[in-house]
Every structure is written in structure tokens, then in C-alpha cells.
Nucleic acid binder design. Structure first.
Lengths: 258, 258
DNA sequence: CGCCGACTTGACACCAATCAAGATAAGTGG
DNA sequence: CCACTTATCTTGATTGGTGTCAAGTCGGCG
């Protein structure tokens, strides 16, 4: 069975072709998503029964928005998405970028509190939340798996709190770059080239700085010989150790001086 | 059965008497901790079987430190604790203050990644992690309860990311004050007096600012007529609405201007 | 009474947000 | 293929905010 989903046209979209395709979950990929790794064959089969595959053809598409009723949770099979939230004054903060294997969309009081949008073309697995809850009550191992994932997200969030609470602009940028260096999807270790899948807007909103400040931070690291800009979305990393060292410096003294 | 635990003497401690007492979990409080609310009587009984009550007599005591092996999780029955983490350069960031009903100490790879310390006198329930896991595998409802709690912590962490990424010093302070206003334990709505259970060190390390900056922010809110300092740990709130309004202003324009 | 830690205030330099303007690149329509 | 539009990226100038160093005050405790 094949289903075509429609989404409200994005402001920057000029296409009219369907951006998303959905179909039932069977043999769509040879790389199993991480959620399957810890589960028995039987459990995987049951998950497949309730899952739908969604395909988003490009970046900038909304998967769900904060405030909407939440009926599904999602797992990424391919591509990058961003999780963001808007303050009451309208400012956007990007809470996380998520990559294949990550899970997102857990409801909070039946609603989505965050917004999820594609950064690149994306393939997702979509699970009906109610059915998933029923399954989890019967399969404790499945529930434990979900618990581990949420706990991981919590650790990641705390990590970002550390960055935003303590690091200078340059350090924040180094932190983001080092994170992306771990993904061979974006970083070619041989020639040292990193293709940043995110634009300066997203980068700034993630690091909690202004867009111009982000650009200047990149320019500074370039002056310092740590990297070289190829084009706006590609940079060549010249000194990984230097980036790491930069994170160790201190922006401000700790309030609690021992 | 009564057990006496010992902890390494704290630097500011001059006492020699035992700071912590532990005893088995039975009828120690007439106010049930929140973890019990959603559980059946049978499940509560089972929880009691594996729980121990710990009492810390004062603030500044370490419950566990980052890097230690994690064998227990904890629930707060009474008092306030702080969860912190130290960056590689030694800077401390306070990730959260936790109050009665909150749960903390979930292991990550068998270890504690954060440090937990008492802010005031505290009574805790301590649960052996392994036994709790076994119970959860048999009682899905218990596990779901834990999942809900971790998800809640994640939302709180994301909330702090919003604050640290977007808000000015004054706004951050207003945010913290408004949070404490919700707890009748600290805020007397009649005379408007707020007893801050945390010192300026903790306050600054929580908000990601320098200690002096925190003091100056308080002074500024006082000049603006929003509050009045009684003594270093007590302030009188004069304009709650003004504090709320302060949070809505924007420190900087969003990077993603629509 | 004197010490000590926590709190507070002042001075100053520097970093980053903001406003402004230009550069680059990709798309669009002629 | 070229002019035009638009979005994104980049750089400059300016100002306010915040970290840091320094000094002083306050309160508790021995």
C-alpha cells in the first residue's frame, strides 16, 4: 500500500511535486536502523507491522510543529533533521540535530513541544504512538530500549547546556565541528574536508549566537590556521588537535572557585 | 535495620558527627513521593522492599560524584539537591536543582556522569539499580513511570538550553526567580518573600554567568523596582508580572529572520 | 574581638549583538 | 545566454553587555 502525504507549502518552496512519500515498512533499506539492533526478530517484525516509511525529498520541510497533537514518533533511517523550539518572543533555538538511528517526536502531554524539520533529504520510520505504547506494555525489552534512547537524549541535552553555559563563541564552533567530524557521512578523513549540512542560520541558532558572530568565528579559526573555507558549506579541517585544545580553554572563571 | 553511611568530609565541614543516616524504607513520611502516585499498592510495596532511606543533615554534602560506579538511583522526599557536571577544564555547570518528587542518578554506561550534592538537609529514597531493572522488566507500568520521568527531565534540560542560548543575564535571573516562586516551600505569597535556598555561587553556575554578574543582575532588578533585597538569601518580590514581562523581551534578534 | 567566607560594588577591557552594506551564488524569466 | 531577483554569506563600524581583577562590606563563628 502506498500513501501520498501532503504538507503545507514551505515559503521557499517553488516545487509542486509531492515532497513526501509514505509507504508501508518492508525491506526499504539494507542498513538496519539502530532501534532494531537490540530487539529480537519477533519484536522487529512487530515494529514493522505498525511502522510507515516517510520520505522527504529535500531540506526545509516540516515534519511536525510545536503545539500540534502528537500521534507518532519517528526514527531516522537516512538524512539529517533539526529539532527546534521557539521562545515566546519568537526566537528560535535549535535543540539538536539528529542523524540516522536517532528517535524523536515523543509527545509531552499528548502534544509536540518541539518542531522537527528536515535539513536534507530524509527517510523516516513513523510509529503510531498509541500502538507503540501498547506494544511496550507487552514487551518490556522494547520499552527499555526506548528508555535508553531518551536517557541518551538527556545526556546530549546536558552536554549542550555545558557548552552554552560555559564556552565562548570560538569554543562553541569548535565543539560543533568536532561533533560533525565523527560522522563519515560529512567528513572525509583523507582530504580533511567537512561538508556542513547546515547553513549559517541553523549553526547560529544551535550555538546560541548571532549569525554574523558565527561567520566571524569561522573566519577567526581560519586566521588561526585551524581550518580553511572552501565554499560556504565546505571547510577543510587543518588541525583537529587544535580544535580540541581550543575547547579546553576557559571563557570565564567558574563561579565556584575552589 | 539501621545503617550508618560515611562520606568523605567536605572541605567546609567542621562537624564530626555522621552527616547521613540510612534506614529501611517504611512509613517515614506522610507525604508520598510522586513516584508512588501512579503505581498500584502492590507495586509500591515492591518498591519499598528494595528502597533505603538516606538522610543528609545539611547542605554541601556529596551524594555521588561523576565518574563513580552507579549502583543506585535516588528519589527526593525532602529538601533540595543540585546536579552538576565539571567540564574538562574544571568549570562547574549546574544542570538542575531537584526538589521533592524528583528522581536522579540514572547510570550512563554503569557510571554516574553527573555529581549530586545536597543544597539543604535532604531525605532520599535510594533504590538499587539492578533490582529496579529486574522489577521494571516484570512491571511495565513501573518502567513507563520511569520513562515519563526521564522524558520530563529532558524537557527541563531543553528549557534550560533555551534560556542559556537566548536570554540575557537579567532574563536568566528572572527565569530562576519565577521558577522558585512556584514552590511554596520557598515563596510566601502573602508577604512576597522568597527564600533562595542557593547561594550566589550556585546561582551563577546554574545560569552560566559570573558570580559578580549575578549580583549585579539582582541589583538591577532592585533598581527597577521588581524586587527588594532583605538579606543575601531573602528577597522580596515586588512585581511578579514585571519579572514575567522581562522574559519576553529579546536579547538579540533571531538568526533566522522570517 | 578578630578571622574568614560570602556577598557586594567599582573600574576596565574585551567580546559579541546589532545595524549597515556589500559580495557571492542560485534561480527565474526574458 | 543574459539581466534580474532573491537568498545566503561575509565584512565593517559601533555600542552595550559581561567577564575579570580589585577592593571593600557584612555576618557568623571561634
Amino acid at each position: 500500500m502506498s500513501v501520498i502525504l501532503t504538507t503545507p507549502a514551505k515559503k521557499r518552496s517553488t516545487r509542486t511535486a509531492p515532497e513526501i512519500r509514505a509507504r508501508s515498512f518492508d525491506r526499504v533499506t539494507d542498513r538496519p536502523s539502530q532501534i532494531e539492533n537490540l530487539l529480537s526478530q519477533k519484536e522487529q517484525d512487530r515494529l514493522r507491522e505498525i511502522a510507515t516509511v516517510l520520505e522527504y525529498r529535500r531540506g526545509g520541510l516540516t515534519i511536525f510543529s510545536e503545539g500540534e497533537d502528537a500521534h507518532f514518533v519517528y526514527a531516522i533511517d537516512e538524512g539529517v533533521i533539526r529539532i527546534s523550539r521557539h521562545a515566546e518572543n519568537g526566537q528560535r533555538q535549535i535543540l539538536a540535530f539528529m542523524v540516522p538511528g536517532d528517535l524523536f517526536g515523543l509527545p509531552d502531554g499528548g502534544m509536540h513541544v518541539n518542531t522537527a524539520e528536515t535539513v536534507s533529504a530524509v527517510r523516516l520510520y513513523r510509529f503510531p504512538w498509541q500502538q507503540l505504547v501498547r506494544m511496550m506494555m507487552e514487551e518490556p525489552q522494547l520499552q527499555l530500549n526506548l528508555l535508553v534512547r531518551v536517557a541518551y537524549d538527556l545526556r546530549q541535552a546536558q552536554r549542550q547546556i555545558m557548552i552554552l553555559g560555559q564556552q565562548s563563541t570560538d569554543q562553541r564552533l569548535a565543539f560543533l565541528l568536532l561533533d560533525f567530524l565523527r560522522h563519515p557521512e560529512f567528513y572525509d578523513e583523507r582530504d580533511g574536508r567537512l561538508r556542513l549540512p547546515i547553513n549559517r542560520f541553523d549553526l547560529a541558532d544551535y550555538l546560541g549566537i548571532a549569525r554574523e558572530t558565527a561567520v566571524r568565528a569561522i573566519a577567526k579559526l581560519e586566521r588561526d590556521g585551524l581550518l580553511r573555507r572552501i565554499d560556504s558549506e565546505t571547510i577543510q579541517i587543518l588541525d583537529v588537535a587544535g580544535l580540541r585544545a581550543m575547547q579546553l580553554g576557559r571563557r570565564r572563571r567558574s563561579a565556584s572557585t575552589d
